[in-house]
Design a binder for these strands. Structure first.
Length: 736
DNA sequence: CGGCCTTAATTTTTT
DNA sequence: ATTAAGGCCG
């Protein structure tokens, strides 16, 4: 078979495995996606499975799209029979089909994280929870973690007063979700899981259907996702005699989502639960040149408890990694710009060059420098299209049209654009709604004295001219009613256009000083809907709106994808997973930033950061540039950092430095050097950013100072001992 | 009620 | 630095 050509023996073995469960340990750049897609093509080609019988789960929408594209390229078939998608996407698909069995309204909506938080805040306000003691974010975390552990509020035994209260909020939150017909991300998984647990015939149906299940990025699955898989594969409450074949592909060294519940342990559990006999290791890397791979291997060897895998390459290459020590973040950015220009002049396309950073906040300075140098760039991540406020507003109107009980959507747009509905009015509506156990919309309708949506014929007339948009609750109710009428039987893009116009959103932003982009985005939303309708042509028109709204929540989306434009690629390291580039810049390699300070506290945090660094390194094919800055403006204040430990964990012989080099002055003092005390130096000698040595804590950098003379204290960021305040009078501090 | 102002808090990563 | 929330005045 031609598509088996060019596979190495291990890849071929994996692709052609019989109908058994298997774990594929696929190192970075070892052809993982190729193996997955070829496996699907092979199964279908050999008649072992029909497209209908294949379930392929990926972690990102992008990966799902790519898989679909590559499979369709290999086989002349309509790929729509296959279920290929993300966990959330597939769970959503199940729930849409079986919404009745799952106890959900037909038009249920998906809450993204921001929606979830605002709903939660409302619930907490109702319960009079002190949000000082219970920060909504933490409560949200508790709820999500509980759901990911498969636990409903009723199943949790509170151990203390705090968790009792948390649990009360959790229960109230879920009730409110039901009332509004809203489902958050974790709920998609939990509810579809429960659907299958409780409904044996459904479970049997899907188990029989999906004889072959393939999972990408298995190391990133959480507990609930793994249970979900087991259920569909036939290892549920009433285990089938023979479980389905689960083909799990993963790399423990690239597990970078433990912070949100991913459980690498699933890999070991999997081999046990599915009695896996075939563990295939893909260890040949086809991506990076030897030096880069050596660096990555050396770095990751500092982690303990790995499954054990040794990546090698047949590609030679001794181009050293380049390391730049910059005075500050501006200089670092200039360095990146200069190097990018150099690469570009050598004929490397900008699309083939990527700049990575640990957190989104770091992109700003880089962007500024690139802009000045007139280098086109594209930033991935950051504010997503569907998360922009004007888009959220427009979607909220649509959500109200689809499902009037959506209080979140109601609150978002009831007074936007302003129509004279203030806090007082809303308090009344809220009170009324609570009293009558109805939604805010129900309360508004009652107050406006208009019949509900069951009787659209009794609409009050609504002016099409917007010169004097109706105000007050009546005006709003009339507006939504006429939107609802204007949207029925109309193609989705036109319906959206209608809503954007009628809501007054467009007019509002047209009159705003900086509203140009927002108007453009609203137009873009219509285009997005057009694209969506074309792609989803098999959907029935009445499902189209709900599906589009779900799509918006599930795929926050790279809609401004300017494919074809040659632009430098900028992204967080997380966003870089799965990609590869000719040249890669890893910036901000500083203690506290990368590894991030927040990761230092939790167990395994450093190892996850190291895996993140490993991912970053292994993205590069030919060249890797490392950089760090001694000082950096962050959150409006200058921070003084020392070089990341990850730099030291790469063998020196693989690195070329930008200057005679001192590792940010971590050089051991010459033997016998006199160690002066603090008092011996003039007070003015201590400056921010000064590198110092402490007899006990070792090497560090002064990051803060206060007081004078004998009272003077300095804050030092130590390489190994963390950040400490020291009294200069007593501390044995030496300039390094 | 609504807009404008000040103030405070926030920031790791994202499906 | 940016943004969310809170307070004040028209």
């Amino acid at each position: 078979m031609s598509f088996l050509d060019g596979l190495n023996p291990e890849q071929r073995a994996a692709v052609t495995l019989p109908r058994v469960s298997a774990l594929i340990l696929a190192g970075a750049g070892s052809g993982k996606t190729r193996v997955l897609t070829t496996r699907i093509a092979w199964l279908i080609h050999c008649g072992l499975a029909s497209p209908h019988g294949i379930l392929a789960v990926t972690f990102t929408n992008k990966a799902a799209r790519e898989m679909l594209a590559r499979v369709s390229a290999m086989l002349p078939l309509d790929p729509r029979g296959m279920w290929i998608g993300t966990f959330h996407g597939l769970a959503h698909r199940l729930l849409r089909i079986h919404h009745r069995d799952a106890g959900l309204p037909r038009e249920f909506q998906i809450l993204d994280s921001a929606d979830q938080l605002s709903l939660l805040k409302r619930v907490m306000k109702n319960l009079n929870v002190d949000d000082e003691k219970f920060p909504p974010r933490q409560v949200a975390y508790y709820i999500n973690a509980s759901k990911e552990a498969g636990l409903r509020a009723s199943k949790i035994e509170p151990s203390d007063f705090v968790s009792r209260r948390m649990n009360e909020i959790y229960a109230a939150y879920d009730e409110q979700c039901i009332r509004e017909g809203a489902v958050d991300f974790a709920e998609l998984l939990l509810r579809s899981y429960e659907l299958l647990v409780e409904n044996e015939s459904l479970r049997e149906h899907y188990r029989r259907r999906f004889g072959y299940i393939l999972v990408d990025e298995f190391q990133d699955t959480n507990l609930l996702q793994y249970q979900w898989l087991k259920l569909i594969a036939g290892l549920g409450p009433s285990p089938a005699a023979e479980a389905n074949a689960v083909f799990a592909v993963g790399d423990d060294d690239q597990s970078i989502y433990a912070f949100r519940g991913a459980n690498v342990g699933n890999m070991q559990d999997f081999t046990r639960d599915f009695a896996v006999e075939h563990v295939v290791k893909l260890e040949q890397n086809y991506r990076s040149e030897a030096n880069i791979l050596d660096a990555a291997n050396a770095l990751i060897s500092h982690n303990r408890g790995r499954l054990g895998k040794n990546l090698w390459t047949a590609t030679p290459g001794n181009e050293p990694l380049k390391l730049m020590q910059a005075m500050n973040d501006l200089e670092e950015a200039d360095y990146v710009v200069a190097q990018v220009q150099d690469l570009s002049e050598r004929g490397i396309g900008l699309n083939e060059i990527a700049v990575f950073y640990r957190s989104n906040a770091q992109s700003r300075v880089l962007e500024h420098a690139l802009f000045r140098a007139a280098i086109p760039y594209r930033v991935y991540g950051g504010l997503r299209f569907f998360e922009r406020q004007e888009i959220k507003h427009a979607l909220s109107y649509l959500r109200l049209v689809a499902n009037a009980d959506d209080d979140g959507a109601f609150l978002r747009v009831v007074n936007f654009p302003a129509r004279g509905i203030g806090i007082r009015t809303l308090d009344h509506l809220t009170e009324f709604a609570r009293h009558r156990n109805t939604s805010l919309w129900g309360a508004a309708v009652a107050r406006a004295g208009v019949r509900g949506r069951e009787h659209p014929s009794s609409l009050m007339p609504y002016p099409t001219s917007l010169s004097h948009a109706p105000r007050g609750v009546e005006g709003f109710v009339g507006l939504i009613e006429s939107m609802r009428q204007g949207c029925t039987g109309v193609p989705l893009p036109e319906a959206i256009e209608h809503v954007i116009e009628l809501s007054g959103l467009k007019g509002y932003y047209e009159n705003e000083r900086d509203g140009k982009d927002r108007v453009a985005n609203l137009d873009e939303l219509v285009s997005a809907a057009q694209g969506f309708v074309q792609e989803q042509s098999e959907l029935s028109p009445e499902n189209m709106l709900a599906e589009f709204l779900a799509h918006a929540a599930l795929e926050a989306g790279e809609y401004q994808a300017e494919a074809g434009v040659d632009a430098l690629q900028m992204m967080t390291v997380h966003a870089a997973k799965g990609l590869e580039f000719h040249s890669v810049f890893i910036t901000g390699l500083e203690e506290g930033l990368f590894p991030h300070e927040n990761s230092l506290n939790d167990p395994g945090g450093i190892e996850e950061e190291r895996r993140l660094m490993y991912v970053a390194l292994t993205r590069g094919r030919k060249r890797v540039y490392l950089s760090f800055a001694q000082s950096r403006l962050l959150h409006g204040h200058t921070r003084y950092n020392i070089a990341s430990r990850f730099i030291r964990e790469i063998p020196e012989k693989l690195i070329a430095r930008n200057a005679p080099y001192t590792y940010n002055r971590w050089v051991e003092p010459a033997r016998g050097q006199t160690s002066a005390t603090a008092e011996a130096d003039a007070p003015s000698a201590w400056k921010l950013g000064q590198a110092v040595v402490h007899s006990k804590f070792g090497y560090g950098v002064i990051v803060n100072m206060e007081g004078r003379g004998l009272d003077a204290r300095v804050q030092v960021n130590f390489r190994d001992a963390g950040v400490k305040w020291l009294a200069l009078e007593y501390a044995k501090l030496t300039k390094a």
